[in-house]
Design a protein around this nucleic acid. Structure first.
Lengths: 119, 119
DNA sequence: CTTGACTCTGACATCGACGTCAAGGTTTAG
DNA sequence: CTAAACCTTGACGTCGATGTCAGAGTCAAG
């Protein structure tokens, strides 16, 4: 599919999709004309990016964490051509990102303490 | 105390303190000269603002939250029910992101399991 | 071929949370 | 009194994630 369809299907603007690509968050093949071409798997890929952005991670943080965000298949993404050591380092970055978010969540929980009835 | 001392004691720049006041997050009395005057209670007040900013809230959100926040030895307790909704939604977005990253980490662990024991 | 929908790459605009600097008034120490 | 240190209000700069617009190329249908 081309960028317009991906934009419609993800609810993300074309501008944002090009920006993600420019920041290294998203890949695309190109027609000879230069038109970007996407596959089905790019739809959930965009969703993942949006979730992380919505949680307050910057594109710079996401670009470190994302190369190893893979689908249920357990297959390596082209972003992870390397060895176990690289994967372990990526895992560490993911741990850090989770830690930051958990700290943020803890702050919110403190505010909500005694006020929230159910989760 | 004047703005310089408050800045030193909170670790927040004078510029930021004036900005907080401009946004309605912080109050100050004024000398005839126009100099801002702060009291002891402004130190934890600034700390509260910083905590909320660090949790990903905007000044616009904070200005709504602050009147409902009761300072209790660093504990933040919302007293206005409609706020809880917004905070819960914010918490939910963070939960989603943590979920994404945990799924990623689990997948990563699966990949690593075949090659080397995950730490 | 022409039209209209779609896409491309710049490049400037916006918004939030400040940084930084300018030009000037105030306070305090000597 | 004077100088240093402190304060004031603008106003412009920055950075990240977009919006928006311009000028131009591409593609499918009639």
């Amino acid at each position: 599919m081309r960028i317009g369809e991906l934009a419609r299907r993800t609810g993300v603007s074309e501008r944002a999709l090009r920006y993600y690509e420019q920041q290294g968050l998203l890949t695309s093949e190109r027609r000879p004309s230069g038109y970007r071409l996407y596959r089905e798997e790019h739809v959930p890929a965009v969703r993942r990016i949006r979730v992380l952005l919505a949680a307050g991670l910057s594109t710079a943080q996401i670009v470190e964490v994302l190369p190893c965000v893979v689908d249920d298949e357990g297959l390596l993404t082209p972003g992870c051509p390397e060895l176990v050591d690289g994967l372990v380092r990526h895992r560490h970055r993911i741990d850090e990102a989770i830690g930051e978010l958990e700290a943020t969540r803890a702050t919110l929980d403190t505010m909500l303490a005694g006020r929230r009835r159910a989760d």
